[in-house]
Design a protein around this nucleic acid. Sequence first.
DNA 1: GAAGAAAGTTAGCCTAGGCTAACTTTTCGT
DNA 2: ACGAAAAGTTAGCCTAGGCTAACTTTCTTC
Lengths: 151, 151
Amino acid sequence: MPPKSPKRPASSAVEDYLEQILELINTKGYARVVDIAGRLSISQASVTNMVQKLDADGLLKYEKYRGLVLTTAGEELARNITHRHQLLTDFLQLLGLAPDVIHHDVEGMEHHVSPETVHAIESLTSHLKRRPALLRGIRSGIPATRSRRNF
Amino acid sequence: MPPKSPKRPASSAVEDYLEQILELINTKGYARVVDIAGRLSISQASVTNMVQKLDADGLLKYEKYRGLVLTTAGEELARNITHRHQLLTDFLQLLGLAPDVIHHDVEGMEHHVSPETVHAIESLTSHLKRRPALLRGIRSGIPATRSRRNF
DNA sequence: GAAGAAAGTTAGCCTAGGCTAACTTTTCGT
DNA sequence: ACGAAAAGTTAGCCTAGGCTAACTTTCTTC
Ligand SMILES: [Mn+2]
Ligand SMILES: [Mn+2]
Ligand SMILES: [Mn+2]
Ligand SMILES: [Mn+2]
Protein backbone atom coordinates (compact mmCIF):
# COMPACT_ATOMS: atom_id res chain seq x y z
CA MET A 1 0.00 0.00 0.00
CA PRO A 2 1.14 3.55 -0.70
CA PRO A 3 2.65 5.23 2.35
CA LYS A 4 0.58 8.40 2.27
CA SER A 5 -2.83 8.43 0.65
CA PRO A 6 -4.21 11.99 0.36
CA LYS A 7 -0.90 13.31 -1.00
CA ARG A 8 -1.14 17.08 -0.77
CA PRO A 9 1.07 18.98 -3.18
CA ALA A 10 4.67 18.96 -2.00
CA SER A 11 5.71 21.94 0.10
CA SER A 12 8.46 24.27 -1.02
CA ALA A 13 10.75 22.73 1.58
CA VAL A 14 10.10 19.22 0.32
CA GLU A 15 10.76 20.30 -3.24
CA ASP A 16 14.03 21.96 -2.26
CA TYR A 17 15.21 18.83 -0.48
CA LEU A 18 14.33 16.55 -3.38
CA GLU A 19 15.97 18.89 -5.84
CA GLN A 20 19.26 18.89 -3.94
CA ILE A 21 19.14 15.15 -3.32
CA LEU A 22 18.72 14.46 -7.02
CA GLU A 23 21.51 16.86 -7.88
CA LEU A 24 23.84 15.17 -5.40
CA ILE A 25 22.99 11.74 -6.72
CA ASN A 26 23.60 12.89 -10.26
CA THR A 27 26.96 14.44 -9.48
CA LYS A 28 28.42 12.34 -6.65
CA GLY A 29 26.41 9.16 -7.06
CA TYR A 30 24.87 9.38 -3.61
CA ALA A 31 23.34 11.92 -1.24
CA ARG A 32 24.62 12.12 2.33
CA VAL A 33 22.94 14.02 5.13
CA VAL A 34 25.96 16.22 5.61
CA ASP A 35 25.99 17.25 1.94
CA ILE A 36 22.28 17.93 1.76
CA ALA A 37 22.68 20.09 4.86
CA GLY A 38 25.53 21.96 3.21
CA ARG A 39 23.68 22.56 -0.03
CA LEU A 40 20.60 23.87 1.74
CA SER A 41 22.50 25.72 4.49
CA ILE A 42 20.52 23.86 7.09
CA SER A 43 21.59 21.84 10.12
CA GLN A 44 22.24 18.11 9.81
CA ALA A 45 19.61 17.48 12.44
CA SER A 46 16.98 19.18 10.34
CA VAL A 47 17.98 17.12 7.33
CA THR A 48 17.74 13.85 9.25
CA ASN A 49 14.31 14.91 10.36
CA MET A 50 13.07 15.75 6.90
CA VAL A 51 14.61 12.65 5.36
CA GLN A 52 12.59 10.58 7.78
CA LYS A 53 9.45 12.43 6.76
CA LEU A 54 10.22 11.91 3.08
CA ASP A 55 10.69 8.22 3.76
CA ALA A 56 7.35 8.07 5.55
CA ASP A 57 5.79 9.84 2.58
CA GLY A 58 7.22 7.31 0.17
CA LEU A 59 9.45 9.75 -1.66
CA LEU A 60 12.65 7.97 -0.73
CA LYS A 61 13.89 4.85 1.02
CA TYR A 62 16.14 5.60 3.91
CA GLU A 63 18.21 3.27 6.05
CA LYS A 64 19.29 4.76 9.32
CA TYR A 65 22.98 5.72 9.40
CA ARG A 66 23.53 4.19 5.98
CA GLY A 67 21.97 6.18 3.16
CA LEU A 68 18.98 6.86 0.99
CA VAL A 69 17.59 6.35 -2.49
CA LEU A 70 14.78 8.16 -4.21
CA THR A 71 11.68 6.14 -4.97
CA THR A 72 10.03 6.44 -8.35
CA ALA A 73 7.60 9.00 -6.94
CA GLY A 74 10.43 10.93 -5.33
CA GLU A 75 12.56 10.95 -8.43
CA GLU A 76 9.64 12.08 -10.53
CA LEU A 77 9.00 14.98 -8.21
CA ALA A 78 12.70 15.78 -8.10
CA ARG A 79 12.98 15.84 -11.87
CA ASN A 80 9.93 18.01 -12.07
CA ILE A 81 11.15 20.70 -9.68
CA THR A 82 14.56 20.55 -11.33
CA HIS A 83 12.93 21.23 -14.65
CA ARG A 84 11.06 24.23 -13.30
CA HIS A 85 14.27 25.52 -11.76
CA GLN A 86 16.15 25.16 -15.01
CA LEU A 87 13.42 26.74 -17.08
CA LEU A 88 13.10 29.80 -14.88
CA THR A 89 16.86 30.18 -14.75
CA ASP A 90 16.98 30.05 -18.52
CA PHE A 91 14.23 32.59 -18.79
CA LEU A 92 15.76 35.09 -16.39
CA GLN A 93 19.14 34.64 -18.03
CA LEU A 94 17.59 35.66 -21.32
CA LEU A 95 16.46 38.85 -19.63
CA GLY A 96 20.06 39.57 -18.71
CA LEU A 97 19.75 39.44 -14.94
CA ALA A 98 22.66 38.88 -12.57
CA PRO A 99 23.35 35.30 -11.44
CA ASP A 100 22.67 35.96 -7.75
CA VAL A 101 19.40 37.69 -8.49
CA ILE A 102 18.42 34.86 -10.78
CA HIS A 103 19.25 32.25 -8.22
CA HIS A 104 17.41 34.02 -5.43
CA ASP A 105 14.25 34.60 -7.44
CA VAL A 106 14.20 31.20 -9.09
CA GLU A 107 14.63 29.46 -5.78
CA GLY A 108 11.39 31.04 -4.64
CA MET A 109 9.35 31.17 -7.83
CA GLU A 110 9.99 27.59 -8.91
CA HIS A 111 7.55 26.32 -6.28
CA HIS A 112 4.65 28.30 -7.67
CA VAL A 113 4.58 27.76 -11.41
CA SER A 114 1.87 25.43 -12.61
CA PRO A 115 2.34 23.09 -15.56
CA GLU A 116 0.47 25.47 -17.86
CA THR A 117 2.75 28.33 -16.93
CA VAL A 118 5.79 26.14 -17.35
CA HIS A 119 4.67 25.32 -20.83
CA ALA A 120 3.94 28.94 -21.71
CA ILE A 121 7.32 30.13 -20.50
CA GLU A 122 9.01 27.33 -22.40
CA SER A 123 7.35 28.55 -25.53
CA LEU A 124 8.28 32.13 -24.77
CA THR A 125 11.95 31.45 -24.12
CA SER A 126 12.28 29.27 -27.16
CA HIS A 127 10.87 32.08 -29.27
CA LEU A 128 12.97 34.75 -27.64
CA LYS A 129 16.13 32.77 -28.19
CA ARG A 130 15.60 33.15 -31.89
CA ARG A 131 15.24 36.92 -31.71
CA PRO A 132 18.50 38.41 -30.44
CA ALA A 133 17.55 41.89 -31.60
CA LEU A 134 14.36 41.89 -29.61
CA LEU A 135 16.27 40.55 -26.63
CA ARG A 136 18.79 43.35 -26.79
CA GLY A 137 15.94 45.83 -26.75
CA ILE A 138 14.28 44.17 -23.82
CA ARG A 139 17.50 43.97 -21.85
CA SER A 140 18.28 47.63 -22.26
CA GLY A 141 14.72 48.62 -21.47
CA ILE A 142 14.53 50.35 -24.80
CA PRO A 143 11.93 49.66 -27.47
CA ALA A 144 13.28 47.12 -29.89
CA THR A 145 14.24 48.45 -33.29
CA ARG A 146 11.85 46.79 -35.66
CA SER A 147 14.66 46.42 -38.16
CA ARG A 148 17.42 49.01 -38.16
CA ARG A 149 15.64 52.10 -39.33
CA ASN A 150 16.60 54.03 -36.22
CA PHE A 151 19.93 53.68 -34.46
CA MET B 1 11.39 55.29 17.94
CA PRO B 2 10.64 52.90 15.09
CA PRO B 3 8.58 49.92 16.22
CA LYS B 4 10.82 47.20 14.85
CA SER B 5 14.48 47.87 14.19
CA PRO B 6 16.07 44.98 12.24
CA LYS B 7 13.15 44.81 9.82
CA ARG B 8 13.53 41.53 8.00
CA PRO B 9 11.93 41.35 4.57
CA ALA B 10 8.18 40.93 4.88
CA SER B 11 6.94 37.36 4.78
CA SER B 12 4.57 36.15 2.08
CA ALA B 13 1.76 36.17 4.61
CA VAL B 14 2.43 39.77 5.60
CA GLU B 15 2.53 40.82 1.97
CA ASP B 16 -0.78 39.09 1.26
CA TYR B 17 -2.44 40.82 4.20
CA LEU B 18 -1.17 44.24 3.20
CA GLU B 19 -2.18 43.70 -0.39
CA GLN B 20 -5.76 42.87 0.55
CA ILE B 21 -5.97 45.66 3.09
CA LEU B 22 -4.90 48.21 0.50
CA GLU B 23 -7.35 46.81 -2.02
CA LEU B 24 -10.19 47.02 0.47
CA ILE B 25 -9.31 50.58 1.40
CA ASN B 26 -9.16 51.54 -2.26
CA THR B 27 -12.52 50.01 -3.09
CA LYS B 28 -14.58 50.32 0.10
CA GLY B 29 -12.74 53.10 1.85
CA TYR B 30 -11.85 50.98 4.87
CA ALA B 31 -10.67 47.49 5.74
CA ARG B 32 -12.58 45.47 8.30
CA VAL B 33 -11.35 42.27 9.91
CA VAL B 34 -14.26 40.31 8.54
CA ASP B 35 -13.55 41.42 4.97
CA ILE B 36 -9.84 40.75 5.17
CA ALA B 37 -10.69 37.29 6.45
CA GLY B 38 -13.09 36.78 3.56
CA ARG B 39 -10.62 37.90 0.92
CA LEU B 40 -7.86 35.68 2.25
CA SER B 41 -10.12 32.75 3.17
CA ILE B 42 -8.78 32.81 6.67
CA SER B 43 -10.52 32.92 10.06
CA GLN B 44 -11.31 36.26 11.67
CA ALA B 45 -9.26 35.23 14.68
CA SER B 46 -6.18 34.78 12.53
CA VAL B 47 -6.72 38.19 11.00
CA THR B 48 -7.02 39.88 14.37
CA ASN B 49 -3.82 38.23 15.38
CA MET B 50 -1.90 39.30 12.31
CA VAL B 51 -3.30 42.82 12.43
CA GLN B 52 -1.88 43.13 15.92
CA LYS B 53 1.48 41.96 14.66
CA LEU B 54 1.38 44.43 11.78
CA ASP B 55 0.61 47.21 14.23
CA ALA B 56 3.52 46.17 16.42
CA ASP B 57 5.72 46.20 13.32
CA GLY B 58 4.62 49.70 12.44
CA LEU B 59 2.92 48.77 9.20
CA LEU B 60 -0.50 49.93 10.32
CA LYS B 61 -2.23 51.69 13.19
CA TYR B 62 -4.92 49.62 14.76
CA GLU B 63 -7.47 50.53 17.37
CA LYS B 64 -9.08 47.58 19.05
CA TYR B 65 -12.66 46.96 17.90
CA ARG B 66 -12.63 50.11 15.79
CA GLY B 67 -10.48 49.88 12.70
CA LEU B 68 -7.08 50.29 11.12
CA VAL B 69 -5.10 52.53 8.80
CA LEU B 70 -1.91 51.77 6.95
CA THR B 71 1.16 53.71 7.99
CA THR B 72 3.44 55.18 5.36
CA ALA B 73 5.68 52.14 5.61
CA GLY B 74 2.71 49.81 5.35
CA GLU B 75 1.21 51.57 2.40
CA GLU B 76 4.53 51.59 0.62
CA LEU B 77 4.87 47.87 1.08
CA ALA B 78 1.26 47.34 0.05
CA ARG B 79 1.71 49.34 -3.14
CA ASN B 80 4.87 47.44 -3.90
CA ILE B 81 3.36 43.97 -3.61
CA THR B 82 0.32 45.17 -5.53
CA HIS B 83 2.57 46.31 -8.32
CA ARG B 84 4.32 42.95 -8.47
CA HIS B 85 0.95 41.21 -8.50
CA GLN B 86 -0.31 43.37 -11.34
CA LEU B 87 2.85 43.00 -13.37
CA LEU B 88 2.92 39.23 -13.15
CA THR B 89 -0.77 39.05 -13.96
CA ASP B 90 -0.20 41.19 -17.01
CA PHE B 91 2.69 39.04 -18.08
CA LEU B 92 0.88 35.74 -17.75
CA GLN B 93 -2.15 37.19 -19.48
CA LEU B 94 0.04 38.01 -22.44
CA LEU B 95 1.00 34.36 -22.57
CA GLY B 96 -2.64 33.44 -22.87
CA LEU B 97 -3.06 31.51 -19.65
CA ALA B 98 -6.38 30.87 -17.93
CA PRO B 99 -7.48 33.32 -15.21
CA ASP B 100 -7.47 30.73 -12.40
CA VAL B 101 -4.03 29.49 -13.32
CA ILE B 102 -2.77 33.05 -13.50
CA HIS B 103 -4.21 33.92 -10.15
CA HIS B 104 -2.84 30.83 -8.47
CA ASP B 105 0.66 31.25 -9.84
CA VAL B 106 0.84 34.99 -9.35
CA GLU B 107 -0.30 34.69 -5.77
CA GLY B 108 2.75 32.55 -5.09
CA MET B 109 5.36 34.05 -7.39
CA GLU B 110 4.74 37.68 -6.47
CA HIS B 111 6.57 37.21 -3.18
CA HIS B 112 9.78 36.14 -4.83
CA VAL B 113 10.53 38.59 -7.60
CA SER B 114 13.28 41.05 -6.83
CA PRO B 115 13.23 44.64 -8.08
CA GLU B 116 15.63 43.77 -10.89
CA THR B 117 13.38 40.99 -12.09
CA VAL B 118 10.34 43.23 -11.84
CA HIS B 119 12.07 45.73 -14.06
CA ALA B 120 13.14 43.12 -16.58
CA ILE B 121 9.65 41.64 -16.86
CA GLU B 122 8.20 45.12 -17.22
CA SER B 123 10.48 45.68 -20.16
CA LEU B 124 9.62 42.31 -21.62
CA THR B 125 5.88 42.73 -21.42
CA SER B 126 5.99 46.24 -22.81
CA HIS B 127 7.93 44.93 -25.78
CA LEU B 128 5.71 41.92 -26.28
CA LYS B 129 2.60 44.05 -26.27
CA ARG B 130 3.84 45.69 -29.42
CA ARG B 131 4.36 42.41 -31.22
CA PRO B 132 1.01 40.66 -31.60
CA ALA B 133 2.35 38.32 -34.24
CA LEU B 134 5.10 37.05 -32.01
CA LEU B 135 2.59 36.67 -29.20
CA ARG B 136 0.32 34.54 -31.31
CA GLY B 137 3.24 32.27 -32.09
CA ILE B 138 4.23 32.01 -28.46
CA ARG B 139 0.70 31.27 -27.37
CA SER B 140 0.26 28.45 -29.83
CA GLY B 141 3.68 27.06 -29.08
CA ILE B 142 4.58 27.49 -32.72
CA PRO B 143 7.60 29.38 -34.02
CA ALA B 144 6.64 32.93 -34.89
CA THR B 145 6.62 33.81 -38.55
CA ARG B 146 9.40 36.35 -38.94
CA SER B 147 7.27 38.42 -41.29
CA ARG B 148 4.75 36.65 -43.47
CA ARG B 149 7.00 34.77 -45.84
CA ASN B 150 5.55 31.45 -44.74
CA PHE B 151 1.92 30.94 -43.81
C1' DG C 1 42.21 -3.10 16.33
C1' DA C 2 41.71 0.96 19.05
C1' DA C 3 40.94 5.98 19.38
C1' DG C 4 39.58 10.09 17.60
C1' DA C 5 37.07 12.42 13.93
C1' DA C 6 33.26 12.75 11.14
C1' DA C 7 28.66 11.73 10.25
C1' DG C 8 24.17 10.82 11.85
C1' DT C 9 20.48 10.76 15.24
C1' DT C 10 17.56 12.10 19.13
C1' DA C 11 15.47 15.13 22.38
C1' DG C 12 13.81 19.34 23.48
C1' DC C 13 12.97 23.79 22.11
C1' DC C 14 11.26 27.79 19.12
C1' DT C 15 8.60 30.73 15.66
C1' DA C 16 5.17 31.70 12.09
C1' DG C 17 0.85 31.32 11.06
C1' DG C 18 -2.98 28.75 10.88
C1' DC C 19 -7.48 26.78 13.56
C1' DT C 20 -11.83 26.47 16.92
C1' DA C 21 -14.49 27.66 20.90
C1' DA C 22 -15.84 30.92 24.03
C1' DC C 23 -16.21 35.51 25.27
C1' DT C 24 -16.87 40.75 24.46
C1' DT C 25 -18.02 44.74 21.95
C1' DT C 26 -20.50 47.10 18.43
C1' DT C 27 -24.24 47.62 15.37
C1' DC C 28 -28.99 47.13 13.80
C1' DG C 29 -33.82 46.43 13.75
C1' DT C 30 -37.94 47.06 15.93
C1' DA D 1 -33.64 51.60 24.05
C1' DC D 2 -32.84 47.05 24.17
C1' DG D 3 -32.06 42.49 22.55
C1' DA D 4 -30.21 39.77 18.90
C1' DA D 5 -26.87 39.45 15.29
C1' DA D 6 -22.60 40.59 13.55
C1' DA D 7 -18.03 41.71 14.26
C1' DG D 8 -14.01 41.38 16.92
C1' DT D 9 -11.03 39.39 20.45
C1' DT D 10 -8.81 36.01 23.46
C1' DA D 11 -7.21 31.58 24.88
C1' DG D 12 -5.55 27.38 23.81
C1' DC D 13 -4.20 24.30 20.44
C1' DC D 14 -1.73 22.49 16.17
C1' DT D 15 1.69 21.71 12.24
C1' DA D 16 5.77 22.65 9.46
C1' DG D 17 10.19 23.28 9.66
C1' DG D 18 13.83 25.34 11.63
C1' DC D 19 17.59 25.27 15.75
C1' DT D 20 21.24 23.46 19.51
C1' DA D 21 23.17 20.16 22.62
C1' DA D 22 24.08 15.66 23.70
C1' DC D 23 24.45 11.13 22.27
C1' DT D 24 25.52 7.13 18.92
C1' DT D 25 27.29 5.03 14.91
C1' DT D 26 30.58 4.76 11.29
C1' DC D 27 34.91 5.81 9.22
C1' DT D 28 39.81 6.68 9.25
C1' DT D 29 44.30 6.57 10.73
C1' DC D 30 47.95 4.69 13.02
MN1 LIG E 1 13.44 26.53 -4.09
MN1 LIG F 1 15.64 25.19 -7.08
MN1 LIG G 1 0.38 36.18 -2.60
MN1 LIG H 1 -1.29 39.05 -4.74
